[in-house]
Amino acid sequence: MITRTSVQNPKELRVVYQETMSALMSELPQVVALDADLVGASGTAKLFRAYADRCINAGISEANMMGMAAGMSLTGKVPFIHTFAPFATRRIFDQLYMAGVYQQANVKIYGSDPGFWALHNGGTHTSMEDIALTRSLPNLTVLAPSDATQFAWCLRKAALTPGCFYIRAGRKAFQDLYDPTSSFELGQAITVDPGHDLVIFAIGEMVSESLKVRDALALEGITAQVVDCFSLKPFDVNGVLAAIQGKRLVVTAENHTKFGGLGSAVAEVMAENALGIPLVRIAVNDRFGEVGTPDYLQKVLGLDAESMLKAIKAKL
């Protein structure tokens, strides 16, 4: 059951990580947590103290951390690893491939601060391509949760499901969307708000941004269905097809490059089903990140509600 929440009391996602991991580690003795010298940054210092024997600071050696975690999983452990999204994916891609998915290891990866969330760490720390990379690998579940409740659910689901997971989420708070009692399904997109004229498929913080767009369009009598596609792999092909039914415009919104992410996934579904409906992909258009505040970056990357509205209206 999925219920929308009406209260806004968003928690920092790193706090959610700390709390959920703490619960998981007390329930499941096989769970271990690894970090690469970002324990302080990921807010897990308390966890690392409470479970000192099952929490490992691997130092600034992300590739080794991935390999070790995979090795641990081959003995029955359920390792969670955390580092920033660019290091969790492009920096250690062969380890993710070879030590991870290729031999069906069982590693759960939290890649934090994806897309513009690198903020003042700037372009070097920005990953606009982590979904494209991870989506290309077999045996990997790829999730991009949109709020604290969903993030916690993803972590728990990962712990209980064999196989490698990549979960991308910020460290800061996302707007609350779902009641904490909500339960989701892998491979099932969620209609957050119904609508008739167009459909917006979104992931992560872009779901909340899309709701702003929806409200603005509603003032003009245009209704938009907003769909949360947090499960990028497995992807809800049938759900996407159903949501597109009867719409005159399809929009995708992601804090990621337009190549290989959510926009591509939706475009693939549309092309394979010969759906000749216009598609607007709100995504980073073939450029790198830079340093800045969230508002500034969202704007220059064209990921704010205003830019979205403009792009959508041009096609309506």
Partner: peptide, 22 residues
């Protein structure tokens, strides 16, 4: 680290004169 700066947290050879490597 201002928005649009030539001096980001981490050295960027394409933005800052004198920086030899990003």
């Amino acid at each position: 680290n201002d928005n649009g700066t030539n001096l980001p947290s981490h050295p960027d050879r394409l933005r800052t004169p004198g920086v030899d490597a990003t």
